[in-house]
Design a protein around this nucleic acid. Structure first.
Lengths: 290, 290
DNA sequence: TCAATAGTGTCTTTGAGACAATATGAC
DNA sequence: GTCATATTGTCTCAAAGACACTATTGA
């Protein structure tokens, strides 16, 4: 065997020798939308929404799925995610973050498909709902993840904790429910977490796990980053901001404390809300200080 | 077109229609090893180490690289990562976590390769250095990531911050240096982070970014999880535990405060260190309470 | 005046950080 | 006793949490 240069090596390299999987991106696109409020003196409540698409073809025909698609040979994974987001919503320059890569051999019945999931946060005001998709059935679903059972069993070297969740996705006329079980194992020092789909419901592939994972990530990150502002328009009231936090965290916050916490992330404007039915509220803007 | 059942659809599905990338895993395996201490009355200092392998073939011949390899068609990505870890270190049942998936089209000169990076934390005591690899040159490198420059430029809608880092990797006779530039952009509400290799040095592929990413992840996670214990043996002194935290965080901690912080994560044993040259120290064990 | 939301003040508890003091074993 | 590390005590300051109070608009 003679010594090859790198250029020579690359010339003779045959990539097709090794079996290769398909690679896709799947987008968990979140937004926050006001709930209908008949009493116009009261403020509307907000719902966290995720965008799903009804599958027209096999596999999982007529099930709902996250928007996504194949990564092209010449684009980066990030670029594929941006492309999918823009195809689905018409938006660019939006907050986006890679979440996790899912690679169980059987996760797609067609063939080996590895999928890289992304989370995007958008301001519902910016979007003309389902921009330019006539054929496809795309809808915003209200997301809720509810803990149903939480059981811990002690073992010799730690414990096994099993948590059952219901992931509920509701659009006006459609309601999907998936049951998930998270298993947290402590064996000695090693902690393992695993979440499995128990009852898949009408959600395609392992997309329930992706949505659940995205929810967890968002709930964590909202505590120590400024991602929440991506769900609001440029001008907002502090109550709206607080509602976003409350909707994502799933519990109420005390007004005075909340305002103290975010006071150096916002800057007040001299504008106020109008036609309120009560005392108008000052509008604020996001300002990154750190 | 007639209506197909899912079974019929799958029978006729041809996966080779779409171009597919190769998918690999790359392992960032960390451990902590005592530095030589000639004065036997003094405690040894500790270094954070990462395992690198010298590449025997093209591409990046004679460069150093993270251990890793192709994901097989029938195994999950996690399984591939476990397999690589065990091939390299002989260890199983070790703390491991998926980090990030790297998919720039040109990151591998051979062909399109998408790589999923994992971090593993192991107790150096458990390992017989480079178990069973005769041909390959594998070494533990002391890792340091040093901020060299930090410049922020204001823009109309936020700022652009550029941080230059040097990633330094040192084994007894080998010293690698890579220069990285992290760019943090705030444009309105949207925050973007991107890290690029400026001067690659003798590190193969984009592995400098993977190591840098892993370091950041570990520094973050050590603050709010118990991953540090994976770097220690079953019995350890509180000073050893503190040294692990200090080594990873890169700065000293106050003893009294540190002990208060970790007191409900450990349980004391009735054993003490021996042959010390000074007052012996009580040995503790990890105990998960949460 | 009332309904409804906007906005502020302050007390308590918790935890982080800094620093000091005492203890113990090898030599 | 001295060196070197082990272990505990306490003061201060900042942040988190709980709760109460005042302000402003439209009807």
């Amino acid at each position: 065997m003679t010594t090859q240069s790198e250029a020579e090596f690359l010339k003779t390299y045959d990539a097709s020798k090794y079996p290769r999987p398909s690679v896709t991106v799947d987008m968990v696109i979140f937004t926050i939308i006001d709930r209908k409020q008949p009493n116009r003196r009261k403020l509307p409540e907000k719902d966290l929404k995720v965008l799903l698409i009804k599958r027209g073809g096999h596999p999982f025909k007529d099930c709902w799925a996250l928007p996504g698609g194949f990564v092209r040979q010449t684009e980066s994974i990030d670029a594929a995610a941006c492309r999918e987001l823009s195809e689905e919503t018409g938006l660019a320059n939006v907050y986006m973050e890679q979440l996790y890569t899912w690679g169980e051999p059987q996760r797609d019945p067609r063939t080996r498909v590895i999928s890289c999931s992304y989370m995007a946060l958008i301001d519902a005001g910016k979007i003309t709902l389902q921009a330019g998709d006539d054929a496809v059935d795309a809808k915003w679903f209200t997301v809720k993840k509810i803990l149903k059972r939480d059981k811990r069993t002690l073992t010799k070297t730690g414990f096994v904790q099993k948590q059952k969740f219901v992931l509920s996705l509701v659009a006006d006329d459609t309601s999907l429910e998936t049951q998930l079980e998270k298993t947290i194992t402590i064996a000695g020092k090693v902690r393992t977490e695993d979440e499995q789909i128990i009852v898949p419901g009408q959600l395609a592939f392992d997309h329930a796990r992706m949505i659940s994972y995205a929810l967890d990530r968002m709930r964590n990150k909202i505590e120590y980053t400024d991602i929440a502002f991506n769900l609001l328009p440029e001008f907002f009231t502090l109550t709206q901001l607080q509602q976003v936090y409350e909707t994502i965290l799933g519990h109420e916050l005390l007004k005075a404390n909340f305002r103290r916490k975010i006071e150096d992330k916002v800057i007040e404007t001299d504008q106020f809300t109008e036609v309120t039915g009560h005392r108008p509220s000052r509008l604020y803007k996001f300002l990154s200080k750190d």
